[in-house]
Nucleic acid binder design. Sequence first.
RNA 1: GGGUCUCGUCGG
Length: 271
Amino acid sequence: DALGQDKKLDDALALYQQMKASGIALDGVVFNVLLKGFVTAGRVAEAMQLFEEMKQNSTPGVVTYNTLINGLGRTGRLGEALQAFAEMSEMGFTPNLVTYNVLVSACGKANMLEQGFKIFEQMQKNGVAPDVITYNALLFGIGKSGQMDRAYKLFEEMKKQGIVPTKVTYTTLMQGAGHAGHCDQILTLLEEMKKKGGFVDLIAYNIVIDKLGKAGRVKEACDIFSQMKADGFAPDVITYNAVMYGLRKAGKTNEAYKYCGEMEAAGIRPN
RNA sequence: GGGUCUCGUCGG
């Protein structure tokens, strides 16, 4: 699993072959881990091949299906993901919270928001209660489709249901507000996150700086950049790219170069 | 008893 996460999937495969050759018994978890490796590397064909192999050995389980559905969904193959979802039920596996979350998330990314809401309803009919990840995934899809009024309604609704928003909820709303061009909302959300304590993180600052810069509010972007450092956050390459993009867009190329120098001085490699 | 699955950030 560690090798697979670390872009060393082929080393993981070698280890797997070695295990097989030494006659070590391989259980379903080993296969799931490999499947996940293929899926995160975008090697879907090999993932499908391994999955077929697993079926011969009758090692697939709910986690296997979830991993596979996630892989299909995140590579834009929503149709195949839904097919795998149907198949798992036929095989007698009961979809769990993760299964539904993977599907809702895939729908949002694929601009199939209404399909996502259908699954949201279906899970509840089947007695699976949505959690904060489900709502965050829906908010992502709503934000991507530019319907922020609907996003704020769902945000209120989730709280009414007793779901506690996380920092991901807030940054997801920020992104949506950015898509809709609502920079002031982003700043309001940042203030709310600060009040919560412990909600503001590097990603939140990166989003704020990016959106302000793209909206031409480059002075504010630079101010937030200073503020994040004052708050003890170290800008990363994404932060620097975002400020520099905004500065360059505003024609402040010299200013952008200053940040570039600062970045290198901070030991951050340009990408 | 433990190990595997799901949500948010830039540029290209």
